[in-house]
Write a protein that binds this DNA or RNA. Structure first.
Length: 642
DNA sequence: GCGCTTCCTG
DNA sequence: CAGGAAGCGC
């Protein structure tokens, strides 16, 4: 390695991040093997005529300006404004109770908010998953994601229901092993409340002391410890209470809660029974919702999954400020993603122009399956859009969990899911490469390229709201229609994700191209501008990175730009990949690496030559790069893509 | 005047 | 990522 920039490594990035890559066996989509002329030429000039073009201008006195701050410009969550305001703001789900005057409302709200706060807070905590828990593997922690989320909330269609309670806007990733503990605590608190209520209601003042409470609590607690059933499907009572198969502990807490309650009324006079019944129901419902809220955050980690529909049915997803960027959920795979040994085909011509995005590998990571998409998001009752009867809500959650647990996206990536029809059964359990060297940010051209497969396409972890073509999802016969299956006016996180992937091929897409590749978007001036703006922002980041690393190479003593090559696994690659391909569910095409290498070299040369003293010294580089756009794989034209 | 881009900012 | 300003080309 001629150049070995030592400081290119960013310690904060977990290695696993770049490992999510696999092979594609299917070959390339038709037409994708054609290397675009501009790119072809660009690459040639890159390889054989390094001094061509702007690079030949005479060097000036080098006055290297301070490295522009390229990082740390992140700002807090931007305020929702503009477009967002045009969306109907349905009533905030600030109460899980149907009666706003219910006197326990505040208590429940407070508890709920507290739980949510805690759970959210856990999102960034390094606590290891609970062993044995189904969630242990399903809810990977994504520090990277947690860092990068936010923002997308300001997407036009991104509707985040106003968050009730103080827990409001902490849109951090959620989940953690402590959830059960928190839930348990919540349950206990509820019990105490119930006791108080019952005490107050009882005329004779049955004065349940600790003993009384204990007595009543006895049975359930036993169940809580031992009564792990086989899941939520076991019993009607469970189902009714929306127990969650993925969380036996929680499940049983709730089941226990329900089951012990019927004993209470016998201590009461008939006059108060009705009241208690109501109170009990309300409490159960409230807690139910609180638990749902927590579970949604914890279990439904893959953002695009739950959160997106939440936009359509705002009341169903209580957490308003929650991060909803889908790609966030794309998060580094907790498990080694399966990979398909690939047939050597990308090597054609060395720099094989662009490698196709192979067709989707069947079983999408987050398949748009009926169970997962429709049921959970059934439109709430018309009269009260934000309030869903607990049992309905729980059934929704249950359905969703069932869907995920059986053939849903989480399990679909696991080898043991042969049932998944579209799943690539040929995928081995572990990727063959183990780990990838992450060292050099730029590596000598002589170094043999890391043998990555050209493309591996796992369907992205989000559910772009697509305009359904005839027979699409609508074919799904469901009881609970998926409300967001409709033509979407604005851009959603799925579109953003797609745009980012497209950036690998085209840095300067025309509006016409965008319209062609986003058939499900109803373009208007605003939307077009927004999407163009996206690419502008992509470029901004891209060029900043390039300049940054070019300067780094210079300071590292690199003198020959030819040695600057962006390889997979390099720090620069990772920086770019994280930005445009969060979760690494997409195999970055080689053509992008070529362009990136060239860009890096251009910056290197320009800076080395002292051109950066010129205010517009980047323009020539932009011009060169703008000619290196590649053709987009046909698959990008799919409205339902990814 | 419009469309597109970069730059700067939040 | 979005807004807005500014510049450029048509």
């Amino acid at each position: 390695f001629p150049s070995q920039p030592r400081s290119f490594l960013s310690p904060g990035i977990p290695e696993a991040e770049s490992l999510t890559r696999g092979h594609l066996e299917e070959g390339f989509p038709h037409g994708s093997q054609v290397i675009p002329q501009p790119l072809s030429k660009g690459l040639q000039s890159q390889g054989r005529d390094p001094d061509s073009g702007l690079l030949s201008s005479p060097p000036r006195v080098c006055s290297q300006p301070a490295d522009p701050s390229m990082e740390g410009r992140r700002s807090p969550l931007p305020c929702e404004q503009g477009r967002d305001s045009s969306f109907p703001r349905i009533q905030a789900p600030n109460s899980s109770l149907t009666d706003p005057d219910w006197f326990w409302d505040e208590h429940i709200q407070a508890k709920r908010a507290r739980v949510e706060t805690i759970v959210r807070g856990m999102g960034l905590s390094p606590h290891p998953p609970v062993p044995g828990s189904a969630r242990a593997r399903d809810s990977p922690r994504c520090p990277e994601k947690a860092r990068e989320r936010k923002r997308k909330q300001s997407l036009p269609v991104q509707q985040n229901p106003p968050k009730p309670g103080p827990a409001g806007n902490q849109g951090s990733r959620t989940g953690g092993p402590r959830v059960r503990e928190q839930l348990h605590l919540l349950q206990q608190q509820l019990r105490q409340l119930q006791e108080h209520v019952l005490q107050a209601a009882e005329p004779g003042g049955t004065a349940w002391g600790p003993s009384g409470a204990d007595k009543r609590r006895g049975p359930p607690s036993v169940k809580q410890r031992n009564g792990y059933r086989c899941g939520p499907w076991a019993r009607d009572s469970d189902r009714h209470q929306g127990s969650r198969g993925h969380l036996p502990g929680v499940d049983n807490h709730r089941a226990a809660e329900v089951e012990f309650q019927p004993e209470e009324p016998r201590f009461l006079l008939s006059g108060t029974r009705a009241l208690l019944e109501i109170l009990r129901k309300e409490l159960t419902g409230a807690v139910s919702q609180a638990v749902d809220s927590v579970l949604q955050k914890v279990l439904l980690d893959p953002p695009g999954h739950l959160t997106q529909p939440g936009r359509s049915v705002q009341g169903l997803v209580p957490e308003g400020g929650r991060e909803t960027l889908p790609e966030g959920g794309a998060c580094e795979d907790p498990l080694p993603p399966a990979a398909v040994p690939r047939k050597a085909q990308a090597q054609v011509g060395g720099s094989s122009g662009h490698l196709p995005l192979a067709k989707p590998l069947g079983s999408p990571r987050h398949p748009v399956s009926p169970r997962m998409t429709s049921k959970p998001y059934q439109p709430p009752p018309v009269t009260c859009p934000t309030m869903v009867p607990p049992h309905i809500q729980e059934n929704q959650i249950l359905s969703q969990l069932l869907g995920q647990g059986s053939s849903g996206h989480w399990s679909s990536r696991l080898p043991q899911d042969p049932s998944s029809p579209s799943h690539c059964s040929a995928e081995p359990a572990l990727r063959p490469w183990g780990a990838v060297q992450l060292r050099p940010s730029v590596v000598s051209r002589q170094q043999p390229p890391v043998p990555f497969p050209p493309t591996r396409w796992e369907t992205l972890p989000f559910l772009p709201s697509v305009k359904m073509e005839q027979g699409g999802l609508q074919a799904v016969p469901d009881v609970l229609p998926f409300p967001s299956v409709h033509i979407q006016e604005g851009l959603n996180p799925g579109h953003l994700k797609k745009a980012k992937l497209m950036f690998f091929f085209t840095r300067y897409p025309s509006s016409g191209l965008l319209k062609a590749y986003f058939p499900d978007v109803q373009f208007n001036r605003c939307i077009t501008s927004q999407m163009i703006k996206w690419f502008s922002n992509f470029r901004e980041f891209y060029y900043i990175q390039m300049e940054k690393f070019a300067r780094q190479a210079i300071s590292d003593g690199v003198t020959d730009p030819e040695v600057l090559v962006v390889l997979r696994g390099s720090e620069l690659f990772r920086a770019l990949s994280v930005h445009y391909n969060k979760g690494s569910d997409f195999e970055v095409p080689d053509c992008f690496l070529e362009v990136a290498s060239l860009t890096l070299q251009e910056f290197f040369r320009a800076v080395s030559a002292g051109k950066d003293s010129d205010p517009s010294w980047k323009k020539p580089i932009y011009k060169v790069i703008s000619k290196l756009d590649s053709d987009l794989p046909e698959i990008f034209k799919s409205s339902s893509y990814p």
